[in-house]
Amino acid sequence: MNELETDDHLVLAATPLRLGFLGVGWIGRHRMKAILDTNLAQAVAIADPSAEMVREAQALAPGAEVVEGLDALLARDIDGIVIATPSARHAEQAIQALQAGVSVFCQKPLGRSATEVKNVIHAAKAADRLLHVDFSYRQTAGLARIRDIIRSGELGQIFAADLTFHNAYGPDKPWFYNKSLSGGGCVMDLGVHIVDMALWCLDFPAVTSVSSQLMAGGRPLDPGSGEVEDYAVATVTLANGTVLRLACSWRLQAGQDAVIEASFFGTNGGASMRNVNGSFYDFRSERFYGTSREILAEPPDEWGGRAASAWAMHLARSKAYDPTCETILQVTETIDGIYSAQQDLKSESTLTYRQEPL
């Protein structure tokens, strides 16, 4: 039997979870390995249009059956599915799986709009099945430590936060640059992470206003052009008075591979997580007191697969609907607000959340 340690007690799983994997590119395979390493699950079937990706996935799960697509995956007797496909497919694929009674772990973004995300959440609730999204930066030791400090009140009233995600390369797959497939550019790809990091650390206060400017190729983005943004800045004001300053980009002349930062400033101190030497994976977190600082967390920290393994651990305990997934909607509504605000640069976009109950 497999053992699963929880906060309260030890749960014994008589049989491994049976999982399907839809999309086994680098991210899909990385999450597969993290899940299989828990020893709580087995890969029953995998599907991907790339024969090369399938071969590499089979090296991790040699016993997995290779099938043609989502319908074939759902025809197998599986408890859950891991979705790592192009963004345009996420919502419809998640809904189909949930309606089939299968729990879902999906790459971000769950949907290209708040409407798509709301439909997925409704499907999860109706099916009473577990739904999680891979907001992986929540799993870093440094950000988790910062969140704990903020929630303890040690920093006083948080009045400002600055979050940045610059990727000096940009995606290497053409669908990222097709708005109908991706839903947007760097805001949808990277901005979704920093919006989630900010709201998660602050316990998801309501958003009252958003202003933004999006650019493509060094020019203001024309919303009707069909282009996607490669640089974006936004100011988000929260109901508690906190102001978020957000910036993200692809192919910025940043002098290093990436610039990733989440800094929070309170009346009694501050805290920040920053990537080390341009790394996408290594972070140092510090707490600030005036002009002094102390280290909270440093590399190494193997955080990349923790969200996936946490989903598997949760699923081993219960496949039932988890209402914490509803915070995904607020993240997506904020992303919608950033896109809406840039369409009229002379005015702000005022957002109201949850006008209708989920």
Rank of each mutant, 00 (worst) to 15 (best):
T6E: 09
A144M: 13
Q42H: 11
C201G: 07
A216C: 13
A91E: 03
D336E: 04
E154F: 12
S113C: 05
A123Q: 05
N178C: 10
R245A: 11
G191H: 07
P86S: 05
G278I: 07
Y169E: 12
R251T: 11
A310P: 04
M197G: 11
T327V: 14
G191N: 08
I149E: 08
T324H: 12
A88Q: 13
E348G: 00
L4M: 13
Y137V: 11
R251L: 09
S272N: 09
V44D: 03
E3F: 15
D301I: 03
G290S: 05
E52H: 14
L73G: 01
S225G: 09
T208C: 07
V236Y: 08
L130E: 01
N240V: 10
A258K: 11
S103V: 04
R31V: 03
K125W: 11
A297F: 03
E227V: 13
L246N: 01
R55Q: 15
M188H: 06
S225T: 05
A114F: 05
E92T: 13
E68M: 07
K33A: 15
Q42C: 10
D189Q: 09
K179Y: 05
N275F: 11
S113A: 06
K179F: 07
G156Q: 05
A247K: 07
V259E: 04
G20K: 01
L199C: 10
S50E: 02
P300R: 08
G184R: 01
A308C: 03
R89S: 08
W303F: 13
G337V: 05
H193G: 07
L214A: 08
I78Y: 02
G20V: 02
T334I: 09
G218C: 10
K173M: 12
P62L: 01
L110A: 04
L40V: 00
G156I: 07
T242W: 03
R129S: 00
T352K: 13
G153Y: 12
I260R: 09
A308L: 09
S309A: 08
A247H: 08
Q253K: 13
G224H: 12
Q93L: 07
